[in-house]
């Protein structure tokens, strides 16, 4: 596909300035206290700060509580099918590299039914932001076990408690060839959430952000430890990641982690003794699928003239 811009689009004088309200659509109907609200606010703030044109911005989601996200954004949105936000996003970016694409997925969407797409989207490394809103449970369908549900956690599908240890989305992502940006943040620390989203947005490539979040309806106690005890949290800080200087007073456990160090990133991801937030890994030199496939745009006339030459090869 081609890399090009529409000169017609440029021709329209555009001196609009966007405020937060310009990105707000319907009133969010998530439960009070749901982590989705904080993510929505942080994302709207990001769009305002970046002055993204609402018509050139797309939010793609699958199915689940968090997948209602696009409905609350006054941008273009694609609320598709369960687990398939990433193929749709891939199609959009391949056809329209000019659009800013955000995929918003829940843990069921990304880590379970769409896991195959997730792995391959990491490898394609298309320039977009993928948010995993991970509340460790299926909420929309009322409390079924998800792949990230803690072992032993009771649910409607596994009333005796989840049989298996949870899947670790960070170590999976960091294990995939061509991963280029992996971060984790939490919805209850808005400044860190915002700073992480901003880094993800500015990264050229597939930016994967896992956002830990509460589900007040089904797992209200899930992150209680981490919320009430700052010592449970460890910040990964770096100038090329999130520095979180404003949080120095609250979160004392700060590790200077160079995000180019993938081995360290994998060790941090594997070790579950702390809730570790920040940019784990980033490498802009990884090939991006849409870039490797750029081709010049041809006019209809040119295409047909090439096609005519092709027919010469088949002529009798």
């Amino acid at each position: 596909m081609s890399s090009a811009c529409s000169l017609l689009h440029l021709a329209e004088a555009d001196d609009r300035e966007f405020k937060m309200g310009d990105y707000e659509a319907a009133v969010a109907r998530w439960c009070p206290g749901c982590g989705d609200h904080s993510v929505l606010t942080a994302v709207q703030r990001l769009l305002t700060e970046e002055q993204l044109k609402p018509e050139d911005t797309v939010f793609v989601s699958g199915i689940g509580c968090s997948s209602r996200f696009p409905h609350y954004m006054k941008t273009y949105g694609f609320h598709g099918t369960h687990g398939r936000a990433l193929p749709i996003s891939t199609g959009i970016k391949l056809n329209r590299p000019d659009l800013e694409v955000f995929a918003v997925m829940g843990d069921g969407d990304c880590v379970s039914i769409g896991a195959g797409h997730w792995v391959h989207a990491i490898r394609y490394n298309i320039d977009m932001v993928a948010l995993l809103l991970d509340n460790n449970i299926y909420g929309l369908t009322k409390m079924q076990t998800s792949p990230t549900t803690p072992q032993g956690q009771k649910s409607n599908t596994q009333p005796q408690g989840s049989w298996l240890p949870p899947m670790n989305p960070l170590s999976v992502t960091l294990g995939v060839t061509n991963a280029s940006f992996v971060a984790q943040t939490v919805e209850w620390v808005p400044s860190h959430l915002f700073a992480t989203l901003k880094e993800a947005f500015h990264h050229k490539g597939f930016s994967f952000v896992r956002i830990l979040q509460r589900c007040p309806a089904y797992l209200p106690k899930l992150f209680e430890d981490a919320i009430t005890d700052p010592e449970r949290i460890e910040l990964l800080v770096h100038p090329d990641g999130v520095e979180a200087k404003d949080l120095e007073g609250v979160y004392k456990d700060r590790v200077y982690h160079d995000p180019t160090d993938i081995d360290a990133a994998r060790r941090f991801a594997e070790d579950q003794s702390k809730v570790r937030i920040g940019v784990y890994f980033r490498d802009e030199s990884r090939p991006r699928y849409e870039e490797t496939r750029h081709l010049p745009t041809l006019t209809a006339e040119e295409k047909l003239s090439v096609l005519d030459q092709e027919f010469d090869r088949y002529a009798v």
């Binding site: 081609s2 890399s3 090009a4 811009c5 529409s6 000169l7 017609l8 010049p296 745009t297 041809l298 006019t299 209809a300 040119e302």
Partner: peptide
């Protein structure tokens, strides 16, 4: 390419 795209 942008010229071609715009022509189209």
């Amino acid at each position: 390419s942008s010229v071609a795209m715009s022509a189209e």
